[in-house]
């Protein structure tokens, strides 16, 4: 079943021409994410962002497909390199800049920063740093929807090949299959867990082979190819929604940045950067647009300008907002206020 599935996915990739408007919409979310993250990097270098900056450069095509192909009511559990997907799923840009800049008006109100953000009420789960943990949380959200009698929903959890090596990930995958949850797990192998290359991360031939062991259907994906991403991830979402077993998509890319912006990634050898998986998905998508004449140069320039304007506006707004203050903070970790434990106050 796995082999057939992979073959199908590959042959579809070659033939498929996704609807142009969807491709262009995805491209614009990718462009927005790239523009935003480049700006965040320059703010970080200028000392204007406290903590870290973690970008998704090179992973935007995979990520955008995840966010874009979900529907209202679906559950999305993005991870650290999913700016494009978060935006496409509906996260307002101002949430990102508020979180990075520590505005108390942001969704995390200065209590958590950078990529550790979410809107659980809007079904965008707020990741924790401990990798693999959000897979089972997504499964639980799907179980709840089933209990409540909802129909036609899926969950999509993102992971990297680094996170795939945790115990939490294994437990989450197994319980997803046991529950027959309508789940898609999109694993992006960006070839490095921080500085550790694939050969010290896992020893199997291909990570997608694990799908059958978990009771998932598995698909491989060239994550540098936006068209393939929309097609393969779209297919997985459709199958999960239709009641097929949970779906695992393993995409291959290269992380085109450090782990965070504090990391110059000097450990990545030059020959790795020349591999096909090291191509920049954004440039590739733009080339497709030009080759197929889906948009002219003037339109592309206008999109760039629009993305820059949106980013500038979101940053300027967040920069003007008040930061949280220790002596005004509500230091209360429980919603049940009369059960808060008061120690020597």
């Amino acid at each position: 079943m796995l082999q057939t599935a992979q073959r199908t996915a590959k042959s579809k990739t070659k033939k498929a021409t996704p609807p142009h408007d969807r491709f262009l919409e995805a491209f614009r979310w990718m462009l927005l994410a790239r523009t935003l993250e480049e700006k965040l990097v320059s703010l970080y270098r200028g000392g204007l962002i406290t903590g870290g900056v973690y970008i998704g450069k090179g992973q935007e095509a995979v990520s955008v497909a995840c966010g874009l192909l979900l529907q209202k009511g679906d559950i999305f559990a993005p991870l650290i390199r999913d700016q494009a997907g978060r935006s496409a799923f509906g996260e307002p840009l101002i949430d990102v800049t508020r979180t990075y800049l520590g505005s108390r008006l942001g969704p995390m109100r200065g209590r958590d920063g950078n990529i550790h953000r979410g809107h659980p009420r809007n079904n965008e789960l707020a990741m924790i740093s401990h990798l693999g943990a959000m897979v089972s949380v997504t499964v639980g959200a799907l179980i709840a929807k089933r209990f409540k009698g909802e129909k036609n929903f899926v969950g999509l959890a993102c992971i990297g090949e680094g996170g795939m090596q945790t115990g939490a990930f294994h437990e989450g995958m197994n319980i997803a299959a046991v529950e027959q949850a309508p789940l898609v797990v999109v694993a992006t192998n960006n070839h490095y867990a921080y500085s550790t290359p694939n050969d010290r991360e896992f020893a199997c031939d291909d990570l997608v082979d694990r799908a059958i062991g978990y009771g998932f259907e598995g698909y491989s994906l060239d994550g540098t190819d936006l068209s393939a991403c929309l097609d393969v991830i779209g297919g997985a979402v459709k199958r999960a929604r239709a009641g097929r077993p949970p779906q695992l998509v393993v995409a291959s890319v290269l992380r085109l940045s450090g782990h965070g912006e504090h990391d110059d990634a000097s450990y990545v050898p030059e020959e790795v950067k020349r591999q096909p998986f090291a191509r920049d998905c954004l440039k590739m998508a733009e080339q497709t647009i030009i080759d197929l004449n889906l948009a002219d140069a003037e339109t592309l320039a206008a999109w760039r300008k629009d993305a820059a304007a949106q980013v500038d506006e979101a940053i300027a707004a967040a920069q003007q907002e008040a930061a949280p203050e220790g002596n005004k903070e509500d230091w209360c970790a429980l919603s049940t206020r009369d059960l808060v434990d008061h120690v020597d106050e």
Partner: peptide
């Protein structure tokens, strides 16, 4: 019943609780 997966058991409970269970 669940598998012997304490992490995933609690993870799933958290996800379900967020959805109102």
């Amino acid at each position: 019943n669940t598998p012997i997966s304490e992490d995933a058991i609690v993870g799933a409970a958290i996800g379900a609780a967020m959805q109102g269970m």
